[in-house]
Design a protein around this nucleic acid. Structure first.
Length: 488
RNA sequence: GGUGGCGUAGCCAAGUGGUAAGGCAAGGGAUUGCAAAUCCCUGAUUCACCGGUUCGAAUCCGGUCGCCACCUCCA
């Protein structure tokens, strides 16, 4: 049982082996909080969450850090145009940039909860680590990996062999295709800014080279080092981060610490499509999690629609895929509800123990995820479990064990959902909703009335009441074992 | 121009040499007063196309076509 993961650096599947046995240090490139985080962002974070869950399922202790970029990422070439995103948003909304950042950061954390993410150990903010960045920049200057031009500091690409090794880019060709304006200050067009001095900038800090703000790569090098040390096991991000962001991080970090490799496994996910088209902030064709919740989709449904496709494959996020996720989750829910009724003695149990077949499913599920987080294959195992369980008549013990397996799969991936609620009512109904539901007595009253109508074969009245309950959000189900009431 | 990826049933999607998982949708049947849910049955002689290697290819090689991504702020 070994976990294999695709490493961008070596462009192949490699057996995962952390530097220190049993402990995984993972850094995820997090959100830039100048606008609402989008489902695109969350695809990348979801991959990180699944990675974390799988590593934990495999017995590792995971130390996960996801940064909050609350300084607008900007390239040195944008500065003259005042393109800093946070600053631009602040100007547009006529508020302090920090206010913007905190507001969207809050939205981000809310979305993490909605989507049932596991908490990372740290969510460091860039603006609270300026001192660490300055220390690193100074170190790079001292070691001859950076140079000053007035108050600006640039990383000296000449001083670092291996730039381009992650993205596998030929540096000379890179220059030809460059669409960025040449900055005359730099010794080499490939050099990138570590510190920029700009008195007019809204967010700025004192530094030995002048009052200004950090370049857009240094924060990850500084914060990953602070929380995880000089050598990380995993570093994740979207595919767009490979170049130049992660390339620059490697150059900075390895030059500063002198240790290689900075990161043992680079994991990147592909961008998603929205309704068949590329999603991008600049095009504005995106959903936020909150948008979708307002439309009535649950976090779990969004999570499944986003996470159902392998992370190195583009996923087309559509309303149809959300609907499909909903149907699938309902099917799982139905199967678990029946198991629960059997386990609680509310429905007749059978003889089947299920044991070996459950163990087999657990094994197959794990094997799928061990192979580069093959979530589609794992989901297939999950649905095979559903159909196995539906086909069989489990003993109470068997039902309990099957329920435990569903809980384990949920824990493992977050793609399965919560266990249904089942209560039996003393008046002969099976109540599948919160026991404290405020409408409970009203609903039960109507259900009783319908039972009487049905007994008198007054089906018209019975159907009327069932429709009425449906409008209230409850479904009445007649079964051989009695009447069941489900909250929809 | 450089680099990488993809093309599997109506749709989504596994499968990297041994004879096509799973989900959604659709049709038929069982069950039901009617429903809902569930179960059973029905699907690709075939994996964009052409050629090659092989006893054997969706899987390897060569070519063709189509789509996409990165190289620029974006996860």
């Amino acid at each position: 049982m070994t976990f294999r993961i695709y490493d961008t650096m070596t462009r192949g599947l490699v057996e995962f082996q952390p530097k220190d046995p049993g402990v995984v240090r993972m850094y995820n490139c997090g959100p830039t909080v100048y606008s609402s985080p989008t489902i695109g962002n969350f695809r990348s974070f979801l991959m990180a969450d699944l990675l974390r869950r799988h590593l934990e399922a495999r017995g590792f202790t995971v130390h996960q850090v996801m940064n909050i970029t609350d300084v607008g990422h900007l390239t040195e070439d944008d500065i003259e145009q005042g393109e800093d995103k946070l600053v631009a948003a602040a100007r547009r909304e006529r508020v302090d940039p920090f206010e913007i950042a905190r507001r969207y950061e809050k939205e981000f954390f809310e979305a993490l909860e909605i989507l049932h993410f596991r908490k990372a150990e740290e969510y460091p903010r860039a603006t609270e680590h300026i001192a660490e960045m300055i220390e690193m920049i100074q170190g790079l200057l001292d070691k001859g990996h950076a140079y000053r031009v007035g108050g600006n500091v640039y990383f000296d690409e000449e001083s670092f062999a291996g730039f381009g090794k992650l993205s596998h880019k030929n540096l000379d060709e890179l220059l030809e295709g460059a669409r960025v304006a040449v900055n005359e200050e730099k010794k080499d067009p490939r050099d990138f800014a570590l510190w920029k001095t700009d008195e007019k900038h809204l967010m700025q800090w004192d530094a030995p080279w002048g009052r200004g703000f950090p370049g857009w790569h240094i924060e990850c090098s500084a914060m990953s080092r602070k929380y995880l040390g000089d050598e990380l096991d995993i570093h994740t991000g979207g595919e767009d981060n490979i170049f130049p962001h992660h390339e620059c991080e490697i150059a900075q970090s390895e030059s500063f610490t002198g240790k290689k490799p900075f990161v043992r496994y680079w994991v990147h996910c592909r961008h998603l499509l929205v309704e068949g088209k590329k999603m991008s902030k600049s095009l504005g064709n995106y959903y936020t999690i909150q948008d979708l919740v307002r439309e009535g989709w649950t976090g779990r449904e969004i999570r499944v629609a986003l996470g159902r496709v392998h992370y190195r494959q583009p996923v087309n996020f559509t309303k149809e895929s959300l609907a499909e996720a909903r149907k699938g989750l309902q099917r799982i829910h139905e199967a678990r509800a029946r198991l629960l009724r059997i386990a609680k003695g509310l429905e007749e149990a059978g003889e089947e123990a299920l044991g070996p077949r459950l163990e087999n499913a657990r094994e197959e599920f794990g094997k799928a995820l061990d192979e580069d987080l093959n979530i589609s294959a794992a989901m297939a195992v999950l649905f095979e479990l559903v159909s196995l369980v539906n086909r069989s008549k489990p003993s109470r013990r068997g039902a309990e064990e099957a329920l435990a397996l569903f809980r384990a799969f949920e824990d493992w991936t977050g793609m399965v959902g919560e266990e249904p609620e089942v209560q039996s009512d003393e008046e002969g109904f099976v109540w599948m909703a919160d026991a404290e539901d405020p409408k409970r007595s009203e609903v039960l009253g109507l259900a009783k009335e319908r039972a009487m109508a049905k007994a008198k074969k007054d089906y018209q009245r019975a159907d009327e009441i069932r429709d009425q309950l449906a409008r209230m959000g409850y479904r009445l189900v007649d079964t051989a074992e009695g009447i069941r009431i489900e909250k929809v």
